[in-house]
């Protein structure tokens, strides 16, 4: 057991941060919000630098991929980095897929993140999974408030079957990816809110000096930290079903609490477009319902642990 980043891990995080500071962040997120679509440019930058292929590298491994996923979310990256760096290597290790990949579970209705932008789509169907190329599905953009480009999907082609059992594998890594993304996104919302509370004076003192506010923020912090480390742990252990579900459920619960608290404690400025909070906060709502949401993660957890 070792909870401190190794020099390699620290170097990866540092180099990634440099790229993300330049190519992602609030300004870029605003640009994309205006333009619509996903950040293909960022995805290519990270891919070219090798940061999306850490999972299969013997020197680094899936934990490093989870760290990058978390970090990218903290920097408000708007691209399917978790799917590309954690799910794809697990089900399609040959490395012949495009960078922009979306994922859907055929049993779960509703719009799909990045489906309209995706060059390929992983379709989970029970225990199995297959990959459809862009020509094999139609994605109709859905209007949502929640920060990601989303689209409803209609499948035409059969696509290419992945190895037997890939549906289960994809689902497990998808949960780890979501957990890491939530941990990073919630951290961004939390940090921005902390700064606001320290800087904003009401009743003659900073809001952060009010005990009720402190307690709510710290309870939220504890939930985010739990989700973050459970996500890392699940990635390290290869996303076993129970651990992946536990991380995803911890993250979904943390996301719900964070979303509620950051908006409540930021007051009305939190809802304005001039302020950065919604760039992270609203994404939490999309992430916490993905892959079946709390109900789906709970079922996977209970099945994995007790059945």
């Amino acid at each position: 057991m070792e909870m401190t980043l190794s020099p390699t891990q620290a170097a990866i995080c540092e180099a990634c941060t440099t790229i993300l500071r330049r190519a992602a962040g609030p300004a870029r997120a605003r640009e994309l919000r205006a333009e619509g679509g996903a950040d293909g440019r960022l995805l290519d930058l990270l891919a070219d630098a090798g940061y999306l292929d850490l999972a299969l590298n013997a020197e680094t491994g899936p934990l490093s991929a989870a760290l990058v996923t978390e970090l990218a979310a903290t920097h408000l990256a708007l691209a399917p980095i978790g799917v590309r760096s954690l799910v794809v290597p697990a089900v399609a290790p040959a490395g012949d897929l495009p960078n922009l990949v979306a994922i859907v579970d055929a049993a779960i209705p509703g719009p799909v993140r990045y489906a309209a932008e995706a060059e390929a789509l992983i379709v989970i169907d029970g225990h199995e999974a297959r990959i459809l190329q862009a020509a094999e599905f139609t994605a109709t953009a859905a209007s949502t408030l929640f920060g990601y480009p989303m689209a409803t999907v209609e499948l035409h082609g059969k696509g290419v079957d992945l190895a037997p059992g890939s549906g289960d594998v994809a689902r497990r890594w998808w949960r780890v990816a979501i957990a890491a993304e939530i941990a990073g996104t919630a951290r961004a919302a939390f940090d921005l809110t902390s700064d606001h509370l320290i800087g904003r004076v009401q009743f003659g003192k900073p809001l952060a000096a009010f005990q009720a506010i402190q307690h709510r923020m710290m309870e939220t912090h504890v939930l985010i930290e739990g989700a973050r480390w459970l996500a890392r742990e699940a990635a390290f252990h290869g996303a076993p079903a129970e651990r992946a579900a536990s991380a995803a459920l911890a993250a979904a619960e943390a996301a719900g609490r964070t979303l509620f608290e950051v908006h409540q404690l930021s007051g009305s400025i939190g809802f304005t477009n001039e302020y950065d909070l919604t760039l992270s906060s609203l994404r939490l709502q999309a992430l916490r319902v993905e892959a079946g949401g709390a109900a789906g993660h709970s079922k996977a957890l209970v099945t994995g642990r007790w059945l």
């Binding site: 070792e2 934990l63 290869g238």
Partner: peptide
């Protein structure tokens, strides 16, 4: 059967494995 993969490197890093001695 596709089982995904599991990283086995146990170098000095964030890792969540107990050592053989601990186990």
């Amino acid at each position: 059967m596709c089982s995904g993969w599991k990283h086995v490197d146990k170098g000095e890093r964030v890792h969540f494995d107990y050592s053989d001695e601990e186990l």
